[in-house]
Design a protein around this nucleic acid. Structure first.
Lengths: 184, 184
DNA sequence: TCAGTGACGACAGATTCTGTCGTCACGATA
DNA sequence: TATCGTGACGACAGAATCTGTCGTCACTGA
């Protein structure tokens, strides 16, 4: 067997994404993924908690956002605090090609959509906690996180579709949209 | 065996909720649920697509909201349209006791949280489609749905916690909060 | 040279979910 | 009353996911 090839995790992720694109998520088994990566099924589960996790490796948005929130100037409102943190999003994400491939696979599978959602919500909870630590009340923090993520999604949609403006600009635009929607 | 007892679906739902509360979601098998409902495991899967679905039966919020959106006066903005529809929410939901029991079980299980989230998002997609049919553009509709659901969640949180105000009032309050958050 | 550590293969087994077929209750019709 | 169709159900087989456990092998440091 091909033990100790190195970059085990990466090999599994690559094999999984390829197979999902070829045969669909439901149509490919963990055994197939492992085999293509020169491993056994058991080893797959040593690197990923379950079959879905292989697509949600290490964006680590949290580690990117939280310090910025922590360092925000005193008295800054909740939503602006979040949007400031979100500005550095594209630097943390994987290359756009990869994101597009992955997005297509996820969109095609309810199981993967579920997983993506809970990742999002888990992030939202971390944001709420960070806002509360800065003195915002729970209710406001929760609402700000929900609304902030809606703005982030709106901006990200545009970015993925090829809009190469500075991400802070995309966020500002999305926030304008939000204002129109919320005030009307 | 106890065939033809009637209310098969309800028996399974009841057995599942009780067992999940006693042993946790992961700790109970579909076979146990079926057994407590005097059925076989195979019959469980005739009534529910998978183990999680047994907790997400038939709120049918969609059927409640869509007609109201359809019937909204011309020219009404997206968010107010949604909030009008949301006003009748409590009439569709199950009794509060049931919701609280269920919420506790869901909160304790990541798998169930995932399922709850995708139910929410699926609803959001239906709302977006309904808004687009009324002439709102896609981007606005998406944002309004995200924000509207944030407001709905905020109002529902208060309602579940025992605030017995008219639900329209709770929604209005949540919307005030939203305005504060969004404008500041 | 040798023990410690971590990655891996091999195997067993519980659980989820699906396909298929035969059986039984019920309702409609002759 | 006799018969037939339909739908709910039990019984069985089997694929796939996920976990526990143990032995092996490569690398590291003393």
């Amino acid at each position: 067997m091909a033990r100790w090839e190195g970059n085990t995790r990466g090999r599994l992720e690559r094999a999984a994404l390829d197979l999902f694109r070829e045969q669909g998520y439901d149509g490919t088994t963990v055994a197939q993924i492992a085999q293509r990566a020169n491993l056994t099924e058991r080893s797959f589960y040593r690197w990923f908690a379950d079959k879905r996790e292989v697509l949600f490796g290490d964006d680590d948005l949290e580690a990117c956002y939280l310090p910025v929130i922590q360092a925000a100037p005193d008295g800054l409102a909740a939503l602006p605090t979040l949007l400031t943190a979100f500005a550095s999003t594209p630097q943390v994400l994987r290359p756009r090609d990869f994101l597009i491939e992955r997005a297509a696979v996820i969109a095609a599978s309810p199981a993967l959509r579920e997983r993506e959602l809970i990742k999002m919500v888990t992030l939202a909870e971390k944001l709420v906690a960070a806002l509360v630590r800065r003195g915002h009340d729970e209710q406001t923090a929760q609402l700000a996180a929900d609304v902030g993520l809606a703005v982030l999604r709106s901006a990200t949609r545009r970015w993925i579709l090829g809009d190469d403006s500075d991400f802070a600009v995309l966020l500002a635009t999305a926030r304008q949209d939000l204002l129109r929607v919320a005030v009307m």
